[in-house]
Structures are given as C-alpha cells and as structure tokens.
Design a protein around this nucleic acid. Structure first.
Length: 561
RNA sequence: GGGCCCGUGGCUUAGCCAGGAUAUAGCACCGGGCUUCUAACCCGGGGGUCGCGGGUUCGAAUCCCGCCGGGUCCGCCA
C-alpha cells in the first residue's frame, strides 16, 4: 500500500514540476528527493535540487511547486509547505484501505516476479557450524524470505565443497581415527582436527591427502564413495543445526558435479580464448593484472586437478543460465576471490552475481578456526541461549506447563539468536560475547514476539467484527500504528533490492514499539462498542504485520509466551 | 607494503550507496507507572566535537582527499 501512496505523490510532484516548467537535473536516483521524515508521511526537498538551476531561493521554488500541485487526489490528504520542504500526508481513505488490506491473512505479496538463487551457508563439511557460519546462514535465510515476500521465486542452495583438501583430510581422518558417538558434524570435526595435527607432525600425510584429491578428481569409485559418505555424514549434522534455527535449503549442489559434467573444462577453454592464459611454473594461469589483480589466477594444477575457483566459475555460469538473479552470501575473507571471480565471469560474458559480504565474527581471543578446533559451535550457543530462555519463561509464566515453557524457550532462543545476528549491518565486524548473547534485556526478538503475543491475547478474547468504522481511529498512536503497518511494503521492497536484511530487523522493532504504545494508551476490550470494533480491527492488522515481519525474519510468531 | 571494510553518548547500534528540517534505538544510570486487554511493557530525565584534519556545497554523520585506530585478504587452501 505504501508504494501506492508514494506513486501518487510522485505523480503530483511530476505534474506540478511540469506545469511550472521546472526540470530536475538528470542522473539522480531519487530525483524528486522524496524521503520518509518525522515531519511528514513523505517529504520532498526537491526545491534544493532546483535552486542552482533556477537561481532562486529553495523556499520560493517550493512555494511555486506547492501551488501547482494538482487538486485531484485519492490517497494524499494535504501537502504542507514548510519553508523549502513540501510535506505530504496520507488521507483517511488511504489509512482505511491499509487497514482493510492488512486484515487479510494473505496480505503483503510483493510485486517482484524474477527468479533468484540464493547461495548461503555452504560451510565446508568438515565440522559443525560455528557462530561465524551462522551469520552467513541467518543473513542468507532472511534474504531468501525477504525476496520471497517481495514476490521473487527463490531457490535457497547449499554449495557443497566436496573436492577441497579439507574434505580429503576428513576422509583421511575418518580412516585413521575412531569416529566418536556424538553429533555427526562434531564427530567429523574431531577427526579433521586430529588429521590436521598429525599432518603437522608427519608431512607424508599431505601426500596421502593429495592422492585422495587426485583419485576423486579422476573418479576413483572407492575414494568417491568415501568422500560421499564423509560429506553426507557431516552435512546431516549441519542440517540438524540449520533446521533447529528454522533455516532451510531447497537444494544442494556439489562442486564435483561441475568437474564431472565437463563444465569446468569448458570454462577453462573459454578463458583460454581471452589470450590471457599461460602455463607458468607448472600450472595453468590467468593473468588479470590489467584488471588490477596482482596475483595470477591458477585455473589448473600441474597434476591436472581443478581448483575451487574454476569450479566456482562453472557453478556461477549454471546459476546465471537458470535464474534471473544470483545472490551469494560470503564472508569477508572471500572478498578478493569473489571480485576475481566476477572479473573472470565478465571475460566469459557471464552475468555476475550480487555478492553480499559480511564481516567477521571473532572470539575475544581471536578469529575462529575449525581446523584448529578454535570455535564456538552454533549448537552450543543455541543450547545455552535456550537454557537461559527457559529460566526467563519459568520466572514469567510459573502457572504454565513444562511443555509450554520448553516450547516457548525454544522459539525465543532461536528468535534471539537470529535477531541478534540480523539486526547488525553485514559490514560490521563483531566479537562474540557470551554475556551479551545471554542477556535477554538486550535482545530485541522477545520484545517483538511479546508484542505479537499481546495482540493475540486481545484477539483471543474478542473476534474482529464484520463491520467497523476505521474513521474512529483518530488517536495519535492509532494513526501512527496504521502508518507503520503500511511501511512494511516499503521496507521489504528496499531490503529485497539492496539485499540488506537488517532494514527489516529495524522495522520489526519499530513496529513493535508503535504497537506497544497503542496497547498502552488505547484500551480495546473496554472501549465503547463502535470504537472497540475499530480497534479490534487495528489489533488484527497489527498482529498480521507483526506476524509477517517475524516470519520473514524466520522467527516464530508465538501466540502466547 | 597494497586492496577492501569499519570507527556515531560508558557499551552495542540505525541512518551513509541516492547530502537537507530537533542524529536512531537498546543496555547501563536517575526518577515515575501493575485492583485495568500478558510489566519480556510504558512514561520522563541526564549523557553525542557522528575517529582526526582539510575540501566540495546554500547545507556534510552522509560526497572527495589525507591521516590515525581496528578488522580482513594478498596459497597450485576453500
């Protein structure tokens, strides 16, 4: 709905500018200088853009535009002239329409229709997800949800690195150390760490790992079976953790597929045609120095085996051929490689991916490493947060059953962890802190879930009547709530275009805040009948908005907590 | 050394890409509010040279340049 209001405002401004004979300089993205503002529902500072062109004061230009705004409007109530600013406000008809639409269960289906593939998590199958990986998973899964909400047809995919040295080390470890009877991904990490330690003491292990890599590349059936077993086993544990966090992949794609089907070979041939390749120091290399890359990109090892980067090029060709948008979620350590990858794709005439880079999560003691066994696993984090949440529920809902409390604690914990990750902009490096992770006063997810539960509590007591009069909702907090509800559409649109899930996190918190104000100042059940009906409708609309916001964040919208 | 990212009240953080009207929110601190739809809530208060220095502009947290501090990458690893 918000976008309808915005479109109308744009139309009014365009018409006014035209009738005044004003022309905004080209090249501006937001040429009408429209923005949300504390002073209006939508404010334009376009007069400032025109001032240098017209050599007049912004205020007098704004006055002219304001005077020329067409009178015919459906959603715009008034446009106020405040100095150089033109402030637009929504009318009652618009607010009533927002309310009407927000009452439907299936409200907020977006207008985008492209297909998209979002690759996220893609952690090496050599151990459990740790608190760094889940930043990838949470950002990725939230983007999947946002894009779907915006209307895109999205496939969430896990790219399985089965050909790397790390997997060869896992296979070697599995055959030299006993697998412990613990969760599959954790058991895998134990032998992987042990294999690495052994390699440090006995260099010949590296050669044995090389033989595994070569055998796999050549399609040796025994080695292939071993790798498949090792990967499947580790992934089964990783999946369990992801499932617990309400994160799902639609498909898995193994990097070896691109070697087997010949596409890696085709990619290398394609790059050969650029004339930038050569055999050097026993490896086939691509010179990207003219694009500012110091180091050459090795396309094939001397022994003929392929490398991650070439398999990734083939993978991206496949993505570009099968989807309208390609989205990659990558840690900051992949920045250089991914820009090399994009350069190579450009050379091949393949559409480049949209890459979402997130900065590192480190421990107070330094960066994490699966190989060195230096990490805090996602499982451990979830267990601790869930225990803490259970304590909180026990205190607040002593009358409820143990089963209820466990269920609430589970969803509160997942919500807290997910929200805590997604609320921070991806390009902020963070340091993991147990104290902060377990401090429920600091976590905003329960706050939002609680607002939703409050709305549900009202609706449990009284149903929304068939008819109601939305014009009775005139209190400041009621109007503010309706306006906040309609902003959802704008937030999703922006988050989907910019691939910034934290916008939604901020919005959800603001929505809960505005709802809590309404809850505090506008009694629903005790209001006179007419007003009660209208307020019940508003509660239902707010509940839907909170629900859809939470669900798009992958957080359970609890009806009671 | 070079590339990229970050630097906003004591702590965490939004806004920066598309410069505009009193800079966002939480935690912590001070003071209030539960016989009233769940107080995991609400209200009020104090606290900010938006890292530093230049520049562009009518106007800079936002754009440009330089510096300082932190992170990260610069493997025939992934």
């Amino acid at each position: 709905m918000f976008l309808d209001f915005m479109v109308e405002v744009e139309g009014l401004l365009d018409a006014a500018l035209k009738s005044c004979g004003f022309q905004v300089p080209e090249g501006e993205v937001n040429k009408l200088a429209l923005d949300l503002s504390p002073h209006a529902d939508l404010a334009s500072s376009v007069s400032f853009r025109l001032a240098p062109v017209l050599r007049r004061s912004p205020a007098s230009i704004a006055a002219d535009i304001h005077k020329a705004l067409p009178a015919e409007r459906s959603y715009v109530d008034r446009a106020e002239l405040v100095g150089p600013y033109i402030n637009f406000f929504m009318n009652r008809a618009f607010l009533a329409e927002v309310l009407r639409r927000a009452l439907a269960d299936d409200c907020w289906t977006g207008r985008m229709s492209q297909s998209a593939i979002v690759e996220h998590t893609s952690a090496n199958p050599d151990g459990p997800l740790h608190v760094g990986h889940i930043r990838n998973s949470v950002i990725g899964d939230t983007l999947v949800r946002i894009l779907r909400r915006a209307g895109c047809k999205v496939e969430a995919q896990y790219y399985v690195n089965d050909m790397g040295r790390q997997e060869a080390m896992v296979v070697w470890g599995r055959s030299h150390f006993p697998m412990e009877e613990i969760k599959a991904d954790h058991a895998t990490a134990r032998v992987y760490i042990a294999a690495h330690k052994t390699m440090g003491e006995r260099p010949e292990v590296k050669e044995e790992a090389d033989r595994i890599i070569q055998g796999y590349e050549a399609g040796d059936p025994k080695i292939s079976a071993e790798i498949k077993a090792a990967v499947d086993y580790a992934i089964s544990g990783i999946e369990e953790t992801l499932f617990r966090m309400n994160i799902h992949h639609d498909s898995y794609r193994w990097e070896s597929e691109f070697v087997r089907d010949g596409s890696v070979g085709e990619i290398i041939q394609g790059l050969e045609k650029t004339g930038l390749t050569q055999w050097e120091e026993g490896a086939f290399q691509l010179d990207l120095s003219e694009f500012g890359f110091e180091k050459k990109m090795v396309l094939r090892r001397g022994d003929g085996t392929s490398l991650y980067i070439t398999r990734d090029l083939a993978y991206h060709r496949w993505k570009a051929e099968n989807f309208d948008r390609t989205v990659d979620i990558l840690g900051a350590d992949h920045k250089l490689v991914s820009s090399q990858l994009r350069t190579a794709l450009r050379l091949l005439g393949i559409r480049e991916p949209e890459v979402v880079i997130f900065e590192f999560v480190s421990l107070p003691t330094g960066s994490m490493s699966t190989r060195k066994g230096k990490f805090i696993s996602a499982d451990e984090l979830l267990d601790q947060v869930e225990n803490q949440a259970l304590e909180e529920v026990r205190l607040r809902r002593p009358e409820e059953s143990d089963e209820f409390r466990r269920e609430v604690a589970r969803h509160v914990a997942v919500g807290a962890v997910r929200y805590d990750v997604v609320r921070v902009s991806a390009d902020k490096a963070t340091t993991f802190d147990w104290k902060a992770a377990l401090d429920f006063d600091k976590l905003s997810a329960p706050f939002i879930q609680y607002s939703h539960a409050r709305a549900c509590s009202i609706l449990r007591r009284s149903a929304v009547p068939e008819t109601f009069d939305p014009s009775l909702l005139t209190a400041e907090n009621e109007v503010a709530l309706i306006k906040k509800i309609t902003e959802f559409e704008l937030v999703i649109d922006r988050a989907a275009r910019e691939l910034k899930p934290h916008h939604l996190a901020t919005y959800a918190r603001e929505l809960a805040e505005v709802f809590n104000l309404f809850y505090r100042f506008s009694p629903v059940l005790d209001a006179p009948d007419d007003l009660k009906a209208a307020r019940l409708a508003l509660v239902q609309a707010a509940r839907n908005a909170l629900k859809v916001s939470l669900e798009t964040l992958g957080i359970a919208a609890l009806e009671s907590m």
